[in-house]
Amino acid sequence: MFRHRDRGRTFVHNVQLAALLSFVAGVVNIVGVLSFKTLTTNVTGHFAFFSEELFSNNYGLAFLSMIYVLSFFLGAFLANTTMEMTSRGSVHFSYMLPLLIEIFLLALVAFSSYDHAVGLSCVLLVAMGLQNALVTKISGSVVRTTHLTGLFTDLGIELSQMIFYKKSHERKRLKRAIVLKAIIIGGFFFGGIMGALMYGWFDRRTLCLPIFILLVALYYDRMLLGYYRFRRKHQGNHQ
Rank of each mutant, 00 (worst) to 15 (best):
G75W: 06
F72E: 11
V69Q: 03
D221N: 15
T149Q: 08
L61M: 15
V143C: 06
A79K: 02
R222V: 12
K167E: 15
Q161G: 00
K166H: 04
Y165R: 11
R7H: 05
H13Y: 01
S51E: 10
H4E: 14
R173V: 00
R232W: 06
Y219I: 11
A182G: 09
F23V: 05
I185C: 01
K137V: 10
G8R: 05
A217S: 15
V31R: 03
I178L: 11
L39P: 12
H147Q: 14
S65D: 13
P210Y: 00
K37C: 07
H116K: 03
G191C: 00
R173H: 02
T81L: 02
H4K: 11
L148F: 04
F188G: 09
L148E: 10
S113F: 12
G187M: 04
Y227W: 01
H147M: 15
L97Q: 04
L218R: 13
F2V: 02
I185E: 03
F188I: 03
L148K: 03
T10I: 01
G150K: 02
F73G: 07
K172A: 04
M194W: 09
T136A: 08
L17M: 03
V126C: 12
F49N: 04
A79F: 11
V24Y: 00
Y219T: 09
L97R: 09
V27G: 04
L64K: 14
S121P: 09
H147N: 13
L180E: 10
A107N: 07
F189L: 07
I211E: 05
L39W: 09
Q131M: 03
I183L: 10
S87L: 09
G226D: 15
F190M: 15
V123L: 01
V43Q: 11
D221F: 02
A107G: 06
S71K: 04
P98R: 05
V27A: 00
G129L: 00
G129M: 06
F212D: 10
V69I: 13
M66I: 13
V91C: 10
L64D: 04
E52Y: 12
N237A: 12
A18Y: 05
G186L: 08
K181W: 01
K167M: 08
N57T: 03
Y227T: 08
M128E: 11
M85N: 02
H169G: 00
L74R: 07
G195H: 07
D154E: 10
T86I: 09
R173P: 08
L34R: 05
Y219D: 00
V15Y: 00
R7I: 01
L74I: 12
P98M: 14
F36I: 02
I163Q: 10
F73C: 06
G150Y: 08
T149W: 05
F104Y: 06
Q161A: 11
Y95N: 15
F49S: 15
V135D: 06
V142H: 11
F11V: 14
G200E: 15
N237W: 07
P210V: 07
N14L: 03
L106V: 04
I163C: 03
Y68F: 12
L174W: 01
L108E: 02
H169Q: 12
R229H: 08
F49H: 13
R229V: 07
M198E: 06
A196V: 13
V28A: 02
A117I: 08
F23D: 04
Y228H: 08
A62P: 13
D6A: 05
F72Y: 12
N237K: 05
D203M: 06
C122V: 12
